[in-house]
Design a protein around this nucleic acid. Structure first.
Length: 271
DNA sequence: AACGGAACCTGAAAGC
DNA sequence: TGCTTTCAGGTTCCGT
């Protein structure tokens, strides 16, 4: 469950296994693959991945299919709220909540997703969802001027605007919360009221939050997903009611755009 | 084009 | 203890 850093880790896992060779088996449960019925990942068998890319929270796997004269095939994968990719031996039994598996010889990729909000789309060209994505917050960086121009068109709160993947691809609820706290900006501030200086601080806050989260994941012994077991690594996410790590004021929690939002009413400035 | 809200799903944790 | 409610890292669709 993924925000940009977790999806980037998933991308690396997929790339590591898929570069070993041709796909020897692929199957999917139920409703996750669209359009089509269960088992519609079948066309992947015999294909070889030529690129595993990520944009925001979306993954795109480009495949060269042996049948159809080497025609190219694209698989778009999104992890929803609870999707995870794991590497396993092909001989290993299914994992709990396993919904998709892709085997490459002796190695196997297992996709688990208890809530089933993830999606797979097999297509010949880019999907509308992929094309609509804004710049990737990690690969393209966070450009303050461009971000400022986009936020200037939004009258909702900056927190809600940040969750729109057209503005910046890859920012999720946690990164928005953490980035705003690092930038000392109140999440309720109206997006179009932020000055360029505010947005510069926000851009830095987001960059730092992403880098921090990525490092946390990279240094974990096994590619563990943030927040699953162990202690909360975040500055303020999940810490409502506790003291702000910066000014010690009690952290508050509200709902913005239907999502829980933790912030410090004292040191995050409302614009 | 942008907005606000419901809908899609299940499981873990908190509340009573 | 056991039943009920709430909440969770995301997107999409729909009527304004």
């Amino acid at each position: 469950m993924p925000e940009l850093p977790e999806v980037e880790l998933a991308r690396r896992t997929l790339a590591r296994v898929l570069e070993r060779g041709r796909i020897t088996a692929a199957r999917s449960d139920d409703r996750l693959v669209s359009p089509g019925a269960p088992g519609s990942l079948e066309p992947l068998v015999g294909a070889r991945a030529v690129a595993v890319e990520r944009r925001g929270k979306q993954l795109r796997i480009a495949l060269a299919a042996p049948s159809a004269g080497g025609a190219s095939l694209l698989v778009f994968a999104h992890l929803g709220m609870t999707g995870e990719w794991h590497e396993a031996k092909t001989s290993a039994p299914p994992l709990r909540h396993e919904k998709v598996r892709v085997d490459v010889g002796a190695r196997s990729l297992r996709y688990t997703d208890p809530r089933r909000l993830g999606r797979f789309v097999v297509a010949k060209e880019d999907t509308k969802a992929w094309r609509a994505l804004g710049p990737d917050a990690l690969a393209d960086g966070v450009d303050a001027k461009a971000l400022h121009a986009k936020l200037a068109k939004r009258r909702r709160t900056v927190k809600e605007a940040l969750l729109d993947q057209k503005i910046l691809a890859g920012i999720g609820n946690i990164l928005a919360i953490e980035g705003l706290w690092r930038a000392k900006l109140d999440p309720r501030s109206r997006a179009d009221r932020l000055t360029l200086a505010d947005v510069r601080a926000l851009a830095k806050g987001l960059r730092d939050a992403i880098a921090f989260q990525l490092r946390q994941l990279e240094k974990a012994t096994e590619p563990k997903y943030v927040n699953m077991g162990g202690e909360n690594p975040f500055r303020i996410y999940g810490r409502a009611g506790k003291p702000c790590p910066r000014c010690k004021h009690t952290l508050a929690k509200i709902v913005l755009g239907g999502r829980g939002t933790t912030f410090c009413p004292s040191c995050q400035r409302r614009i």
